[in-house]
Design a protein around this nucleic acid. Structure first.
Lengths: 112, 112
DNA sequence: GTGACAGGATACCAAGCGGTATCATAATTA
DNA sequence: TAATTATGATACCGCTTGGTATCCTGTCAC
């Protein structure tokens, strides 16, 4: 289905990486530019960018000796879809609650 | 904003835990029931359930000596909202592409 | 009560991860 | 050419984490 789900969720699991994504949402950044905003070395930021790239969440454009990192909005689709699967259960829970209130009884719906 | 974002994303970052959530979507399960489906000990499953609980993604109901673990669909909201922030950029990217095609020019929109 | 059963808690281990230091490489500039 | 700049790559360290083994507590059935 979505082969990058694991790498994507793993990339999102770190607060620094989520912060990087928010910053890239404002436009392309080189590693040096990003590093200015964080209290860590360039090598550490580079590692985070590698994880984000593995997750398909960013793309890189080379220009001379610089490499511009940019958001890849499409890369969020696997995680959005995976989480979206559970929207159905939120709705179902609501409609069950609604039924319970209207019928004034609470069936247990234990399956399995 | 959403204090559980970190614990939530961390909980989703493991494939076993995502599998557990999918199984809980079919109904309540005890630890013993869940353990049957995985190639690991009950203690390991228990640890995963603790992480899922910390992330607010499941709830537990005690009944005698059994403890039924159930999905908490509301717990997905922080992650859904966080990812949803980037939907805007997907739209923006599309409209930029549309403009570029219509105007037949490619402005660079490098900001910062 | 005595077993058997479901679960909690802890110590322990190997692997992974976030981070630094360091060296190497390519491109700009004097 | 030489120095600087931007980045890549690797070795290493400490902490976290996924997993097991083990022991303990509480509950159900005789």
């Amino acid at each position: 289905m979505h082969p990058d789900t694991q790498n994507g969720f793993r990339a999102l699991a770190d607060p620094t990486r989520r912060d990087i994504l928010k910053r890239l949402a404002k436009g392309e950044h080189t590693i040096a530019q990003l590093t200015q905003h964080f209290d860590m070395t360039r090598a550490a930021v580079k590692k985070h960018l590698t994880v984000l790239s593995d997750g398909g969440l960013i793309t890189t454009r080379a220009a001379g000796r610089e490499r511009f990192n940019a958001l890849n909005p499409d890369g969020f689709a696997p995680m959005r879809d995976w989480i979206g699967f559970f929207d159905h259960f939120w709705d179902a829970q609501l409609s069950n609650l609604k039924d319970a209130i209207e019928n004034n009884n609470q069936k247990d719906q234990h399956n399995d």
